[in-house]
Design a binder for these strands. Structure first.
Length: 118
DNA sequence: CTAGTGACCCAAC
DNA sequence: GGTTGGGCCACTA
């Protein structure tokens, strides 16, 4: 059952999913949102992580965007990259991670099927 | 209650 | 290949 439907706050649900990400692996915002029960709420994952206090037990640095790149601006972005590098995650010349290898693959219903544009 | 914003995502141009 | 535009949901004012 999804943490969101378990009566837990949205933030807590997101944090719970991020906390499940194994070391040396990365997940996308949309993927975390899907597992957390917020299928199309990838933005809220970023919003929740943005509100995440420093020093928390949540490995927020393992969360990247759908392209495997860091969306975080400035200082935090560099910090995230260093933390991932410390866990063995390699970035390519374009500062992107190979999701085919480092991407986290939970057994949940993957968020697929979007409308996009008219 | 409405309006604005965002560490996003996807499809079309 | 990069750029543009729209849409989703949750939170704050």
């Amino acid at each position: 059952m999804s943490a969101a439907s378990a009566g837990v706050s949205t933030y807590q649900a997101i944090y719970a999913v991020v906390r499940r990400i194994p070391r040396g692996r990365v997940a996308s915002y949309g993927q975390v949102a899907g597992v957390a029960g917020l299928a199309n709420a990838a933005r809220q994952v970023g919003y929740a992580l943005h509100a995440l206090p420093a020093g928390s037990a949540v490995p927020w640095h393992r969360v990247l965007n759908a392209r495997g790149a860091i969306s975080l601006p400035g200082y935090h972005g560099v910090t995230q990259r260093l933390l991932l590098a410390r866990e063995g995650v390699r970035f390519d010349a374009r500062s992107r991670v190979d999701l085919a290898q480092f991407g986290w693959r939970p057994r949940r219903s993957p968020p697929s099927g979007r409308k996009g544009r008219s």
